[in-house]
């Protein structure tokens, strides 16, 4: 019995007009919008509903201990990683695998840089100072939102790392299929960037 082959990984599905991996990725991202949307909605509810006076008033910027310089730096890191990700796909479309792989490596390194900054310059000093998610309602929201986002960064690194390493062999067997898989990885990665585009002003600036 021959091994089963996934249909419509390269050619568009006759009904949907797109290859199946792309449709699946977009549907997954739609569910992700709802996941992050629920947490953003909770944040809005807590912030707008916080008392205007008394002990439970929403903390000021001085009390939240968040530096816009660190958040802004990480914003730029993620934006650059989004560009390198889409450039990797473009290089594959132009049949230039070695350049594409280089762009994937840069994306992977930038994702790692984001996490290192997040952990060493934001999370660690806060834990050292005794700040926990249980400290107050702001830090509960901050750690949940940024923690969930950081987990998505880790997930992205696993996938990108796979395509830099063992998954790269697919390029030799089926370059178009490999290119499509990188496009889907890129869709996910741009979504992670997109979430941070909203997290940065909401947590660090407003």
């Amino acid at each position: 019995m021959s091994a089963s082959v996934l249909p419509y990984t390269v050619k568009p599905h006759p009904v949907t007009g797109v290859y199946s991996g792309k449709l699946g990725t977009w549907l997954f991202l739609a569910s992700e919008v709802m996941l992050f949307g629920a947490f953003f909605s909770t944040y809005v509810l807590l912030r707008v509903g916080a008392p205007t006076e008394g002990a439970a008033v929403w903390p000021t910027h001085e009390q939240t201990h968040l530096s816009w310089k660190i958040g802004g730096f990480n914003t730029l890191v993620l934006i650059i990683s989004s560009v390198t990700m889409v450039l990797a796909w473009a290089q594959l479309k132009m049949n230039n695998f070695s350049k594409a792989r280089l762009y994937l490596i840069v994306t992977f390194v930038l994702a790692g840089l984001f996490l290192v900054v997040k952990l060493t310059m934001e999370y660690y000093p806060k834990f050292e100072a005794g700040i926990r998610p249980s400290t107050n309602i702001f830090f509960a929201a901050y750690f949940v939102l940024t923690g969930l986002h950081a987990l998505h960064i880790v997930g992205g690194m696993v996938v990108i790392g796979y395509f830099i390493g063992p998954g790269a062999s697919l390029w030799k067997k089926d370059p178009e299929y490999f290119t499509n898989r990188i496009e889907c990885t890129g869709l996910y990665w741009h979504f992670v960037d997109l979430v941070w585009i909203f997290l940065f002003p909401v947590l660090y600036l407003l």
Partner: peptide
């Protein structure tokens, strides 16, 4: 919980 967060060096003094 509404405890004020303790001060730390990674703060927002230059925000």
């Amino acid at each position: 919980p509404v405890r004020e967060a303790p001060a730390h060096s990674g703060g927002n003094a230059e925000s």
